[in-house]
């Protein structure tokens, strides 16, 4: 088993501001402070041959916290990008082609159920037609974990303004379980956890400093997942 860990990437707004000069602060002011942690655990050697593709699905909502639809779409886009881009079969195309075997109620609960599923009439042929080598199951969520402060705005005949400070913390925590359909096994897991603090200080004008935790988790998970799938190295 391979366990690779990269942590934590801290991206404090205050550290980045001086580097980019006077024109950049207005852009960066839209960014809060985030820490991210990405982990990978590989059970078997992976890799993709020519013509092979993957499908990325939200885990069943009957069995926990299925990733949001827009997060699944975002990770799929990330995996398709870059020098080592991976072919991704659209989720709906896959679930329609394999209906009813990948619906929330009927989807296999573990890689151990793959042999039984692939033995069903037509299933293995349909998967082969689409060239699908790996199924990636995404679960997790982005949640508000803390918050406070107060901000009030007023307007009058002479103008208006806002005063105060409000803040909140978000935690985006997602796991991607990778199943190898060729070897009918659990290939491993990639996980991303991004914690971010957003705030809106206001002295007449409110200045939003937003930590986009879900977007950061999508990019981190997508990048690591692409490496996981294409790096043909053995597990360590």
């Amino acid at each position: 088993m391979k366990l690779r860990r990269r942590l934590p990437d801290t991206l404090p707004m205050t550290r980045r501001l001086p580097i980019l000069g006077m024109g950049a602060p207005l852009i960066l002011l839209a960014t809060g402070c985030m820490t991210s942690r990405v982990e990978e655990s590989k059970n078997v050697a992976t890799g993709l041959a020519a013509g092979e593709s993957v499908v990325i699905l939200a885990a069943s909502y009957h069995r926990g916290k299925a990733a949001e639809d827009d997060f699944v779409a975002c990770v799929s886009d990330q995996v398709r990008k870059g020098d080592s881009a991976v072919a991704v079969v659209p989720e709906r195309q896959f679930t329609d082609a394999l209906f009813p075997w990948f619906e929330p109620r009927t989807a296999p609960q573990s890689a151990e159920a793959l042999p039984e599923l692939l033995a069903r009439p037509g299933v293995a042929d349909r998967i082969e037609q689409h060239g699908i080598r790996y199924i990636v199951w995404l679960d997790g969520t982005t949640e508000r974990t803390n918050g406070g402060g107060s901000l009030s705005c007023a307007i009058g005949p002479g103008g208006g303004g806002c005063f105060g400070l409000t803040w909140w913390e978000d935690d985006a925590s997602y796991d991607a379980a990778v199943w190898d359909l060729k070897q009918k096994s659990d290939a491993g897991t990639v996980s991303a956890d991004v914690h971010g603090t957003s705030m809106i200080p206001a002295l007449l004008i409110p200045v939003p400093l937003i930590a986009r935790t879900q977007s950061a988790a999508c990019k981190d998970l997508g990048r690591e997942l692409r490496e996981f799938l294409t790096d043909a190295g053995p597990p360590t």
């Binding site: 209906f99 009813p100 619906e103 929330p104 109620r105 009927t106």
Partner: peptide, 13 residues
């Protein structure tokens, strides 16, 4: 749509 597919999946299986 997901609920209707869920019904169809249950009946099919």
């Amino acid at each position: 749509v997901l609920a209707m597919r869920d019904a169809a999946a249950t009946i099919a299986v």
